[in-house]
């Protein structure tokens, strides 16, 4: 039996937009850990275009298999259980995109990220978006939007938060917010970045770069 030789992918042209925004935050040649890396799109991009030593952790075994079969260094694991064994400052950046709301202990995960990495890059869907607020107010039921698309009893998103909540957590934990953006679902930059109150109302996702203050 012979194995079809998939060409190693070159994804820079059609990468998810929010991943492109994240990639833009990362300095060339950095050591990067992408938690919840899926099939490794971001780490492949970082290796090919920025010469990064990028690695991934992914919880979905089918995605892990796909990533490794593409020659990418990805291991099966998850944010809650697989960060504690890394040594301190093993990475320049630790990325957690669209996953914070689904982990069991978000506060601990952030602590681990900033222990094993110099900087953390975190994106999450914003529960403070106006449509979410309006739906809850109008119908009195859990909101269902394109971002929050599954019923409350089936959602993996057990820790939703708003952009303001996240700012508050960073203040509590003593994290410096070096950069932040509000973006729409497709990952386009939203224009409210100077005003966090507006961003919290109109941004569908928050994207933050943190370091220990």
């Amino acid at each position: 039996m012979s194995v079809p030789l998939d060409p190693v992918r070159y994804v820079a042209k059609n990468m998810r937009l929010d991943l492109t925004l994240i990639a833009d935050m990362i300095a060339p040649g950095s050591r990067v850990l992408d938690i919840g890396c899926g099939d490794g799109e971001l780490i492949d991009h970082l290796f090919r275009t920025r010469g990064c030593d990028a690695r991934g952790i992914e919880i979905d075994m089918a995605e892990v298999t796909r990533a490794v079969a593409h020659g990418l260094p990805v291991m099966h694991g998850d944010a809650d259980n697989d960060l504690s064994q890394y040594p301190d400052a093993a990475f320049d950046y630790v990325v957690l995109s669209r996953t914070l709301q689904a982990v069991e202990r978000p506060r601990e995960v952030l602590r681990q990220m900033l222990r094993i990495g110099e900087r953390a890059i975190v994106s999450f869907p914003n529960f403070g978006h106006w449509l979410v607020r309006w739906q809850l107010l109008r119908s009195g039921r859990m909101p269902m939007t394109s971002v929050w698309s599954r019923p409350w009893h089936e959602t993996p998103n057990i820790h939703p938060c708003t952009i303001r909540d996240f700012f508050a957590l960073c203040a509590d934990e003593g994290y410096a917010v070096e950069k932040w953006l509000a973006v729409d679902e497709a990952g386009r930059r939203a224009p409210w970045r100077r005003f966090s109150g507006l961003a919290n109302l109109f941004g569908e996702q928050g994207l933050f770069q943190l370091r220990k203050a």
Binding site: M61, V64, T65, A67, L72, P73, M75, H76, D82, P87
Partner: peptide, 12 residues
């Protein structure tokens, strides 16, 4: 990981 090695890990 604890040795900061480059590791892939898959369960088939």
């Amino acid at each position: 990981n604890a040795a900061a090695a480059n590791v892939s890990f898959v369960e088939i």
